[in-house]
């Protein structure tokens, strides 16, 4: 009988090679894949958007975004993904399906996406220049502030994009991409960033 390996692996496991890439010198772009997150998509049932918003606010203490925004709660990030729907991004099983099902039982449909997406965090002095090659969204700090989000496409691939809290005075842009498209988008990102020099890493934990 054939032997199967059911090890949980990142969709970028094969493509990601930690270290420097592209132009030598100081890296203009930092690409970090973040692993081991919990991700659930919540979509309001027909006519239940108000109920869903109410129970979400009770559970998370802040209102779920109703416009393209990402909001931080004590232990999760809520990211707008379309009208009357949003993602819950968390870790350590705190907002895993088992805990969310009773909360949203009467108002929302839940979809487990933890292993269906790859999460890539982009920062660095040239991050915006590199993303300008891939995205038609205006990512100027004045137009895309901390907490701004967008459901958009990069290289014909649907992504969820949002700006996290700044790190070391620099913008951090996060991209959630379908797992099966992650490798393709990753290579496109590397091609786009190569001229600026890239620092590639992965994190085993959402921070």
């Amino acid at each position: 009988m054939a032997e199967f390996s059911w090890d949980v692996r990142s969709p970028l496991d094969r493509a990601l090679l930690a270290g420097p890439y592209g132009a030598h010198g100081d890296a203009g772009v930092t690409l970090t894949e973040i692993r081991n997150f919990d991700l659930v998509q919540v979509m309001a049932r027909r006519g239940k958007a108000v109920d869903m918003a109410t129970v979400a606010k009770t559970r998370f203490g802040v209102a779920a975004p109703e416009t393209p925004k990402a909001v931080h709660t004590a232990d999760a990030t809520l990211i707008w993904s379309g009208p009357d729907q949003f993602f819950i991004l968390a870790k350590n099983g705190k907002h895993a399906m088992d805990w969310l099902v009773p909360t949203f039982a009467a108002s929302g449909s839940l979809s487990e996406q933890s292993h269906a997406r790859a999460l890539i965090s982009i920062s660095g002095a040239k991050a915006r220049a590199m993303l300008a090659k891939l995205s038609s969204i205006d990512l100027h700090p004045g137009a895309f502030a901390v907490g701004a989000a967008a459901a958009t496409s990069m290289d014909h691939t649907s992504v969820t994009l949002w700006r996290g809290n700044d790190r070391d005075g620099q913008a951090v842009l996060n991209v959630l991409v379908f797992a099966t498209f992650a490798e393709s988008l990753w290579h496109t990102m590397l091609d786009s960033a190569a001229e600026y020099g890239v620092a590639i890493a992965h994190s085993e934990e959402l921070t």
């Binding site: 979509m43 309001a44 027909r46 006519g47 239940k48 958007a49 009208p83 009357d84």
Partner: peptide, 13 residues
């Protein structure tokens, strides 16, 4: 404008 049915809130809310 949103087509009929776009966004659960727009339908039978």
């Amino acid at each position: 404008e949103p087509a009929a049915g776009a966004g659960a809130a727009k339908v039978g809310a």
